[in-house]
């Protein structure tokens, strides 16, 4: 594996880790991954707050 391949791979892994981290963080904050975000929802995050409370 040459240096450039190694560096590109590291960047790619970092991106993947960041995305996973962000998804977990969003889940904890009660944000959803649905196509419309919560500000477009008639219930505006209240459903996810409830879910968060249930989780704890």
């Amino acid at each position: 594996m040459n240096l450039s391949t190694f560096l590109i791979l590291i960047v790619l892994i970092a991106v993947v880790v960041l995305i996973i981290f962000k998804l977990i963080l969003d889940k904890k904050k009660g944000k959803t991954n649905c196509g419309s975000n919560c500000s477009n929802c008639a219930l505006s995050q209240t459903c996810h707050k409830k879910e968060e409370l249930n989780d704890h």
């Binding site: 959803t32 649905c34 196509g35 419309s36 477009n40 929802c41 008639a42 219930l43 459903c47």
Partner: peptide, 15 residues
């Protein structure tokens, strides 16, 4: 109607 955007809020709106 809300479900045309996304099913999640659509389902929630059934409340």
């Amino acid at each position: 109607l809300i479900g045309t955007g996304c099913g999640v809020p659509g389902i929630m709106a059934s409340r």
